[in-house]
Nucleic acid binder design. Structure first.
Lengths: 230, 230
DNA sequence: TTGTCCAGTGGCACGCAGTGCCGTTACGCT
DNA sequence: AGCGTAACGGCACTGCGTGCCACTGGACAA
């Protein structure tokens, strides 16, 4: 196919082919079903050869969530560039919000992807694995932060899992409602409420830790625009 | 193969073939590597035809974790048969411990499975999906319990994810150490510590809720054999 | 302009996972 | 003894994913 060859010549052309393939895949998966759509179908719909599809995506499933690793890298960057004195609560909140930005970038596509990953078992399991990559990332950085805490590993595991779970709850509620533009703030707010549920200072914690915890709580309360508990 | 046919005739024969297939699969995966082992190899090593393998397992990966659904069912039973007044903390702890029992049933096999799911990317992702099934199960029952709480969904998501994460942390530490028989109690104890990190009563909680919370804390403290915080 | 390089493409063939189908076998039941 | 049936093995087929190779058309130098 000459057209595809010319498109793929330049970097913009490559991005265009990639978009076409994603669009064709999502379209066909929704209309015809995931199992009943072959890679040949997707490639043909995008006007490229079957072999070219696998030059853009590692697998058939990859056409649905192709930017997973980029998102992971962005979150890792948030953690790595964070100031050491930044409270843990605000840090994990910031990291989580990064993902919101990515999804909000193309709401229509996000909703379609959500529906597919929600309904097709294979894609749902793959999504679970992706989410677990986020969880591991969170936990890894938290464990580093809690190195001095005797229960640090446990706290890191619990907080990491809790944050990711809350994030998914908020995100999926938003996506399930069709990703309305005016619903993004509610989504972010819902996610931030997780900070109030994170475990407090460890049993053998020192004074500094306690102060940090109170600071975190105060910051979170400010962000939620809610008065302190009576 | 006449031998296999005769073995498979009776229920005990079926169980035997199944065990042989699992053993052959684990053995070959560890020795030759997962990717370099074909289903033909596994079937041949177990003395059955390739077609028969797929009558016992849905897929090649299934030979590693074939009892996943049974475990899910056992946990669901714990939740369904629980008394409504049982504190949430003890309930999720009991449910989690059920899984320990399953793994402790055949420690050698559990360790080999752990190594494989730890090292082979495909199997690790599949394991993530399995763990997420547990998380969903926990969350589903917790959400029912927290129906009266305005933040019930969030609390259910957070507690469910936290409990499962803590469970995995304890379990994998035990498996990583070679699943020593005298290490199971430490594993269970480590898991139980998660109860101390679970979010307390909701902001708008009522008195009953507060009392329940204190009860839960007391029970957990008793189980951990540790005195109340000074 | 002409020749050379090369990144990207499409086609072909292959291995392997998973499935439907069918003939065969051996056990249980009457 | 004869029959029903459950489990088996083999065969053929679809589809995913990969290695290989020839081709194409743009970029660049002479």
């Amino acid at each position: 196919m000459t057209v595809a060859a010319r498109r793929g010549r330049s970097p913009e052309g490559r991005a265009e082919v990639r978009r076409d393939l994603v669009a064709a895949a999502v379209e066909l998966f929704l209309v015809r079903g995931y199992e009943d759509t072959t890679v040949d179908d997707i490639a043909a719909a995008a006007g490229v050869g079957r072999r070219t599809f696998f030059r853009y995506f590692r697998s058939k499933e990859d056409a649905i969530s192709p930017d997973h690793e980029a998102a992971l890298a962005r979150i890792a960057e948030v953690f790595e560039t964070a100031h050491p004195t930044e409270p843990t609560a605000t840090l994990v909140l910031r990291a989580g919000e990064t993902v919101f930005d990515i999804y909000a970038d193309d709401p229509r596509l996000s909703v379609e992807r959500y529906r597919l990953t929600h309904e097709v078992p294979v894609l749902r399991d793959r999504e679970s694995a992706s989410v677990d990559h986020y969880r591991r990332l969170f936990t890894r950085y938290l464990r580093r932060r809690f190195a001095s805490d005797p229960d640090g590993d446990l706290r890191a595991a619990v907080i990491g899992a809790a944050v990711v779970a809350a994030h998914n709850l908020a995100l999926r509620a938003w996506l399930g409602a069709g990703a309305p533009e005016d619903g993004m703030e509610a989504c972010r707010g819902r996610f931030r409420r997780v900070a109030g549920m994170l475990p407090g200072e460890p049993a053998g914690g020192d004074g500094l830790h306690a102060v940090t915890q109170r600071l975190e709580q105060a910051v979170v309360r400010l962000e939620r625009n809610t008065p302190p508990a009576p």
